[in-house]
């Protein structure tokens, strides 16, 4: 029921923004989205399911109504923000932040900064404090995010076939962000932050709430894929989603 509902809202959102005749690859993407393991995942906190339904509904509603869009987008933002924090277990219901889940409180990082400050005798102490300081967290956050973006994580949650249109969708977004719905930039930023601040982001829990957004990117990219290649990848992907031996 939940996957069907979310999928319908996500597809409706896309069709509403891009009405008219769709390419065969987009229809194939509809099919492949139905197979995505992420859609069929059951999060650890069941409340997150409600937030996912709300998020996909608000996105669709946003595309539907001519006025008052900002109210809907705020509601969508609240649901996805709260839902992503819950899904990523950064907060526990209703809103208690679990600091042990955050990347900021890891003692080895603090110790390393102090150690390098002490050891870097090739420069005077004030310069050492400039070189080695908590600004290293930006590097850690970047590392955390890009470590998450592995083929295995993305394939496991979105299917190998969908990575092809997803890549094209993202490339289209970075090339011409003005062609995408305005709130998209905020959503992507939130997704980035959710993954980066989590100490050990899990592929399903971290991406679950973002399914409608990822589905939109996949559908946008599907317009530019080579149909034969996409079809072949989908066949291979279906083999991979077959039950694993234990």
């Amino acid at each position: 029921m939940v996957p069907a509902l979310v999928l319908i809202f996500s597809l409706a959102f896309y069709i509403r923004l891009h009405p008219g005749r769709q390419t065969p690859a987009v229809y194939l993407a509809f099919l492949s989205l139905a197979f995505t393991p992420l859609l069929h995942f059951r999060p650890d906190y069941h409340t997150v399911i409600l937030f996912l339904i709300l998020f996909s509904f608000f996105l669709w509603l946003w595309s539907l109504i001519p006025r008052g869009k900002w109210v809907v987008i705020i509601l969508a933002l609240v649901s996805v923000f709260w839902g992503s924090l819950l899904a990523g277990k950064i907060v526990s219901w209703p809103a208690a932040v679990d600091r042990t889940r955050l990347v900021f409180d890891i003692p080895t990082y603090k110790d390393a900064v102090r150690l390098h400050q002490r050891d870097a005798r090739y420069v005077p102490f004030p310069v050492r404090r400039l070189l080695f300081n908590p600004s290293v967290y930006t590097y850690i956050l970047g590392n955390n995010f890009f470590r998450f973006l592995t083929l295995e994580n993305l394939m496991g949650s979105l299917l190998l076939a969908n990575l092809y249109p997803l890549g094209l969708g993202l490339a289209a977004f970075f090339r011409r962000p003005e062609d995408f719905p305005r709130p998209f930039r905020v959503f992507l930023l939130l997704l980035f932050l959710q993954i980066t601040v989590s100490r050990s982001p899990d592929k399903f829990n971290s991406l679950y709430i973002w399914f409608p957004l990822l589905a939109y990117l996949i559908l946008r990219g599907a317009r530019d894929v080579r149909l034969k290649a996409y079809f072949l990848l989908l066949l291979i992907s279906i083999i991979f989603v077959l039950p694993r031996p234990v």
Binding site: T108, Y109, V136, L151
Partner: peptide, 25 residues
């Protein structure tokens, strides 16, 4: 294995593994 070899975090942030585990530099 292929995924671990193409992991952007490994390629651009910590793959060289010069310092002890847990060092952010």
């Amino acid at each position: 294995n292929y995924s671990s070899y193409t992991n952007p975090g490994y390629l651009f942030f910590d793959g060289l593994n010069l310092l002890p585990r847990g060092d952010p530099y």
